[in-house]
Computed example of a mutant assay.
Amino acid sequence: MRLDGIPLWDGTEYRGPADLSWEPDRILDVSPAPPRHDDLCVIPGLVDTHVHLVGYAGPGDPPDFATWPLTTTRDEQVLHGLAHAQQAMRHGVTTLRDLAGDEAQIALRRVFDAGVLPGPRIQVHGVVGMTAGHNDLFVPPAVPVPLRKPVADGPDECRKLVRTWARAGMDGIKLTTSGGVLSIGDRNRWRNYTRDEIRAVVDEAHALGMPVAAHAHSEDGIRVAVEEGVDSIEHGTLMSTDLAEALAARGTPVAPTLLINEAIAQGRVPVTPEARAKAAELVATRDVLLAQAAALGVRFVLGTDANGHHVRFGDQLAEVVHMTRVLGLDAGAALRAATSDAADAIGAPVGRVRPGLGADLVVLRGRPWERIEDLAVANIVAVVSRGRVVAGALP
Rank of each mutant, 00 (worst) to 15 (best):
V145P: 01
M170K: 08
V128F: 06
V111F: 06
V181R: 07
V162C: 11
I106W: 11
Q105S: 01
S178N: 07
G179W: 04
L147D: 11
R163C: 08
D171F: 03
L161C: 14
G101T: 06
V127A: 08
G154Q: 11
R167C: 13
A152R: 15
G172M: 06
L161Q: 15
L99W: 00
G154I: 08
G154F: 13
V116A: 14
D156L: 12
D98V: 08
P155N: 06
H134R: 01
L147P: 08
N135W: 04
G115P: 02
V181K: 02
G126F: 01
K174C: 03
D98C: 08
A168E: 15
V181I: 12
R159D: 15
V139K: 10
V143L: 12
T131C: 04
H125C: 10
G133M: 02
D98L: 01
K149G: 09
K160M: 15
L108K: 05
P146W: 08
G129V: 03
V139Q: 11
A104C: 05
G126E: 12
G172C: 08
G115W: 00
D153F: 05
T95Y: 03
P118I: 00
I173A: 13
E157W: 09
R97P: 08
K160V: 13
I173W: 10
L147G: 02
R97E: 04
A152F: 14
T177K: 10
Q105A: 03
G154A: 14
T94K: 02
R159M: 15
A114H: 05
R97S: 07
V143R: 13
A166C: 07
G133H: 02
V151N: 06
W165V: 05
K174L: 02
V128N: 09
P120C: 01
P118R: 00
G129I: 01
D102G: 11
G101A: 09
V128Y: 12
P140Q: 02
G101Q: 07
A104H: 13
T176H: 13
H134T: 06
P118W: 00
M130R: 11
G115H: 01
G101K: 04
K174D: 07
T177L: 04
G129M: 02
A100V: 02
A152G: 11
E103V: 00
G179Q: 03
V162H: 14
T177G: 12
L99I: 06
V128W: 07
R167Q: 14
A104M: 13
E157Y: 10
E103W: 13
M170E: 04
R163S: 15
L147F: 15
I173V: 13
M170C: 10
L182P: 00
R167F: 15
V143N: 14
L147R: 12
